[in-house]
Nucleic acid binder design. Structure first.
Lengths: 214, 214, 214, 214
DNA sequence: GATGAATGAGGATTCATTCAT
DNA sequence: TATGAATGAATCCTCATTCAT
């Protein structure tokens, strides 16, 4: 956790440091990211950094936490009718997740990187991997209980499929839609008819593939 | 490309350098991987390295190329009846791919890392991503022509789904089966009944999800 | 000297600062000892430290003074019959000194370190060395006057011998007795028969070696 | 151990580095001694240092080894009649040791410091302490066997006395004789009549104190 | 063709001290 | 009087690359 010092900083300065650090860790691995670059850009003394944070790992942890918290809030504030079907819910979740990715791309990027890095301080590595997988696992089990998902399917495997598809889908769609539509603001791209259609197709594939078969 | 000097090296020495470099890049990011460590382990002079390769990037490129070539050869030499159905083919491909991962884990790891890194010299980054996607795209289109895949599905999207699932499936299964079966040789794990069943389930999901619907 | 502000501090707080500073300087060299660590542990502000003390050296000086004063008091309050023979007195002094070492190990350690360090601010270095030597010198001269010590012996040299032996003896005995007896409370170790015997031997060596010869 | 690189250096340069490093470690603790200062004074690049030595500790170890080896050689080349009595031998040893201290003061200083430091990497600390103590212990036991030393005296305690006196005696004499005689070359100071007399006195004290008593 | 010494910028982190509040 | 943020130089160490032999 950052030290008190950091939270006592003027809002403006604190935010500047966070933004620059996010940018650094979004563009670089944990090892490659440089505290020196961050402080240089932020215009603060090297020593000051260590009055705000314990060390590099402390900063990194903090950014990661910011990411998950922001995403949780984002999803929470847009939460849909809890009664909806499993696939409808997944669709909502996927869209909302992607919109979050677009509205806070660096915040997303850093968490994303964390799960794949392989050069993180060992404790972080482990923690980074579990989150999403566990969540989807529960979702699948509930879906099977409701009869939305074929209960012969191994729930862990199904969770793997959801996890892997939805964690890459955002990037895929962004690339594709930008190529076709030129450089527009990402957020609006996901409001287009084409985006909707692609979402539909993915959901259909999963629903047909996993749905309960009479 | 490595310089001529490299290819003039005694086979044994050349291979040793390749192996150690593979190990280094398999365990580290591009930035974190260290030429110093490689030459130290290989027992060659620092200067010699720069007579074999232009620079770090040159070596990296070369290893990447080795990886794709080796995989192509591996798949080519085991190729099945070209007449088989699309999903049967994909199933074969997936199994074969995973077996390749297991037989040449470092060679796989480095290509794998490449596609996700984000700290590669910019030109490499782009190149690393396309390969597999293009291949699956063709496969889907053939499948649609044959009537194996529902032709209403966007072929690029379907290729994305295949690509993303099968590039992660190996790791997923390895983790899971090892946890359940204890530490066995990976190769044999994929011959077990449980492995076969999980393969079947994935294929069913995809086949039901994408298959032609009457 | 510490500033007035320091002495105006509530007793409890002042003592806490002293204790923690003692611990830090007992475990570290002058250079290696860290003001940062002291204030962190003491829970006072960095700035406050500099309102109590001029600087690092000022604190160090003060601790050193505390040590010599405490030792003087300790010895004074236990003082034996002033008529006793020189070697009996030295024996008492040595035992008492060692007991002081044990009852205030940090206070002793810091003075001890001071005499040997070589990285002290130059003025301190000199001062640290003299104290004990002068004291033993006087003792030897009195012993010679009384006829307890052979007056052909150079008194300064004899003082050197006493000084050097008795300043190391405590550590030597502690090590040795602990090894033999297991980890007991140091104070009680010096009440054992073995301890007494070793004291006797040292005293005999010195008495035979320096004693008046008929 | 320094790397081959270091031993391949031109004699002149190698010696310059050793001399400057000796000076640095003679004047500073292990922690306080600075690699940066050494390389700056030696006029070599920071990176070059790490081509000569593994790290700070490696250099330190090497200097320590140089010291003990040089001393062993110095003593070996002046070795006396092996038949001489124990105290005569100790007298020779003490004089020779002190002359070595004077001829290579930095080399001595660093070993000396090592035994007392308290802030060394833990492994070194232990090693530094034993050497001399073990040596004197053997000497005492031989002396007792020959009848030169009273066999009722605890040999370990006697070794402690020798060790502690002779490791400080050099410094004591140097201080004292310089004060009395003005600043002369140390080596010649130990040839004066006064020096001889002080040596005699110390030896007499020890011999009378420990000698066999009929 | 092979060598390996030299380089200097860069990495993270700790430090004693100052000074505005 | 007390605070604690700011500072920047200092620490050890690693790196990819060059170049004279």
């Amino acid at each position: 956790m950052p030290k008190e010092t950091f939270f006592n900083l003027p809002e403006e300065k604190r935010q500047r440091i966070i933004d620059l650090a996010l940018a650094e860790f979004a563009e670089n691995d944990y090892d490659t990211a440089s505290i020196s670059r961050i402080v240089a850009q932020a215009g603060i003394a090297k020593g000051s950094f260590y009055q705000y944070f314990e060390n590099k790992e402390d900063l990194y942890n903090y950014l990661l936490a910011l990411g998950t918290e922001a995403k949780a809030q984002f999803l929470g504030s847009n939460a849909p009718d809890p009664q909806m079907g499993t696939f409808a819910y997944i669709r909502w979740l996927s869209e909302a997740g992607i919109k979050f990715e677009l509205s806070r791309p660096k915040l997303s990027q850093i968490g994303y990187r964390a799960a794949r890095s392989g050069t993180l301080p060992a404790d972080l590595q482990a923690r980074a991997r579990v989150g999403a997988a566990v969540f989807f696992r529960q979702l699948v089990e509930q879906g099977q209980a409701k009869g939305d998902i074929n209960s012969e399917i191994d729930p862990d495997l199904a969770a793997f499929v959801f996890n892997v598809i939805f964690s890459e889908l955002g990037g895929y769609l962004l690339n594709r839609l930008q190529d076709e539509a030129g450089l527009e603001d990402g957020r609006s791209l996901f409001e287009t008819a084409e985006a909707k259609q692609l979402f539909d197709q993915i959901l259909h594939i999963l629903e047909f593939g996993m749905g309960a078969r009479e």
